[in-house]
Amino acid sequence: MFTNAYSTLFQHIRRLYLCIDNSTKDNHILVYFFLSHITSRLDLVECQKMRLFKPIIAAHRRYGSSALSAQKWIYAKTFKGEPNQQNFRLEKEELPALKDGEFLAQAQYISVDPYMRPYMMAYPEGSLMIGGQVGKVLESKNTSFPAGATVFGQFGWRTHTVCNPSDQPMNGPYTYVLPDFGSLPPSLGLGVLGMPGNTAYFGLLELCNPKEGETVVVSGAAGAVGSLVGQIAKLKGCRAIGIAGSDAKCHWLKSIGFDGTINYKTTNNILADLKKIAPKGIDVYFDNVGGQISEAAIKLMNLYGRIAVCGTISNYNTSIEKVTDPMRMMVYKQLKMEGFTVWRWTDRWTEGIAANLKWIQEGKLKWQETVTEGFENTPAALIDMLKGGNTGKAVVKV
């Protein structure tokens, strides 16, 4: 009875195994675990009689972590102007067997962010594309990162990673197990509950100290950071104005609480429009773009205004724009302008995540993602994001 029932079952499983494409090694691992689970409950002698155990052992040898290969995107050609597909090359890499202290993670979501464009200019051709990802731990020899855990890691654009956290620099949150997001998607660990969320939280609250009744202007307002800055400003009792690149984005900003918006691509005079929408001037300017938009905003700053410089995406793909020297305005209006990266608050990283998560759970903070399907489309997702094709956080679902 055993032989007849389980022989049929195993024949179906073996057909499934043989039909899986060789390039999808993660599927092989799932089949191996399934086969192992079943055979652990069967009589070994019967399995051997039926010659069913041999392919199971072969699957383990071939598709264990010691033979798993990763796909990765390489920075193939130095960026000149807007990135294109020729700047990237897809490669495979055989992964080593795990050592003590290491774990194997499979990417679920990969982040694409504006900073990647200027930062990669410091890397030689042939380097792995940088960036964060959220992944699942498949196998582990590190008790702090158990199998099944969902992790954030600065692993770059790759499908699988063997990581030893102790080998990473200590000046940033390079790898950590994500806290419990409840019913929220793990991809938020790349957005509102990750680096962009903390950038908005600390950049606005620590550098700009917004006060109730003040006017806060945000450029790049429909992006991963800017959309959160405006909402946090509203939570602090401020008036929030967002500058974005389409009518659809401006409409969305108003739907999440912004008091006013400007479409910089259709306006004929950004300075005049800012004067109309901010008649009492600007107290806080959160700058994500630089260039002429920032030139106009600085001209309308009030006495003792504060400016946080988070990014300059307007010139990432082009030469730097020539704008009016702001130094005279800085002196006469006694302005405070400070550039920053979020890594200065690594010792308070979980504070920002916890605060943003609490606001989401209370219905006070809205988020949106632009999701690109498929690891093979990661370069296209970056190219599109740098052209303003995203609303909220841009991520790739692997």
Rank of each mutant, 00 (worst) to 15 (best):
residue 101 G to F: 10
residue 19 C to V: 15
residue 170 M to L: 13
residue 289 V to R: 00
residue 381 A to E: 01
residue 188 L to G: 00
residue 199 T to M: 04
residue 393 K to P: 00
residue 303 L to S: 14
residue 163 C to F: 11
residue 16 L to Q: 13
residue 195 M to S: 03
residue 161 T to G: 11
residue 183 S to G: 06
residue 279 P to Y: 10
residue 33 F to H: 09
residue 68 L to T: 00
residue 209 N to Q: 13
residue 218 V to R: 00
residue 13 I to Q: 12
residue 364 K to C: 09
residue 368 Q to L: 04
residue 388 G to S: 01
residue 328 R to H: 01
residue 130 I to F: 06
residue 74 I to W: 04
residue 381 A to G: 06
residue 392 G to C: 00
residue 128 L to V: 08
residue 95 L to H: 02
residue 320 I to V: 15
residue 147 A to Q: 13
residue 386 L to S: 01
residue 219 S to M: 03
residue 29 I to K: 06
residue 141 K to M: 12
residue 192 V to C: 02
residue 114 P to S: 02
residue 229 V to C: 01
residue 338 E to S: 15
residue 258 F to R: 07
residue 337 M to F: 05
residue 277 I to S: 09
residue 4 N to M: 14
residue 89 R to A: 03
residue 318 T to C: 03
residue 389 G to S: 05
residue 238 C to Y: 00
residue 381 A to S: 05
residue 78 T to E: 15
residue 98 L to T: 08
residue 172 G to M: 09
residue 64 G to P: 01
residue 315 N to L: 13
residue 204 L to C: 02
residue 70 A to F: 10
residue 35 L to K: 08
residue 285 Y to G: 13
residue 182 G to I: 10
residue 295 E to W: 06
residue 82 E to P: 07
residue 184 L to R: 02
residue 286 F to S: 08
residue 345 W to N: 07
residue 120 M to P: 12
residue 180 D to K: 13
residue 100 D to Q: 14
residue 160 H to T: 10
residue 136 K to F: 02
residue 77 K to E: 11
residue 380 A to Q: 14
residue 290 G to R: 02
residue 258 F to A: 11
residue 143 T to N: 05
residue 124 P to H: 09
residue 121 M to C: 14
residue 51 R to H: 13
residue 163 C to M: 12
residue 328 R to S: 06
residue 356 N to C: 06
residue 128 L to N: 07
residue 69 S to Y: 13
residue 380 A to H: 11
residue 284 V to I: 10
residue 123 Y to I: 11
residue 331 V to F: 09
residue 130 I to T: 08
residue 157 W to C: 02
residue 300 L to H: 03
residue 326 P to W: 13
residue 32 Y to Q: 07
residue 5 A to R: 08
residue 189 G to L: 06
residue 310 C to Q: 06
residue 237 G to W: 08
residue 40 S to A: 06
residue 120 M to Q: 14
residue 61 R to P: 05
residue 77 K to Q: 11
residue 77 K to S: 09
residue 332 Y to T: 14
residue 43 D to Q: 07
residue 296 A to T: 08
residue 335 L to T: 07
residue 83 P to R: 00
residue 140 S to F: 11
residue 67 A to Q: 07
residue 98 L to A: 09
residue 370 T to P: 00
residue 343 W to C: 06
residue 49 K to F: 10
residue 298 I to F: 14
residue 311 G to S: 01
residue 101 G to Q: 07
residue 196 P to M: 11
residue 74 I to Q: 08
residue 232 I to Q: 01
residue 362 E to K: 00
residue 220 G to L: 04
residue 38 I to N: 09
residue 108 Q to V: 07
residue 241 I to D: 04
residue 317 N to D: 15
residue 140 S to A: 05
residue 251 H to I: 09
residue 303 L to F: 15
residue 158 R to Y: 07
residue 311 G to H: 04
residue 350 T to C: 02
residue 339 G to Q: 13
residue 48 Q to L: 03
residue 81 G to V: 12
residue 13 I to E: 10
residue 265 K to W: 12
residue 98 L to Q: 05
residue 152 F to P: 02
residue 244 A to R: 06
residue 23 S to Y: 12
residue 59 A to W: 14
residue 386 L to M: 12
residue 173 P to D: 03
residue 262 I to R: 13
residue 245 G to H: 02
residue 280 K to L: 15
residue 281 G to M: 11
residue 151 V to W: 03
residue 323 V to S: 10
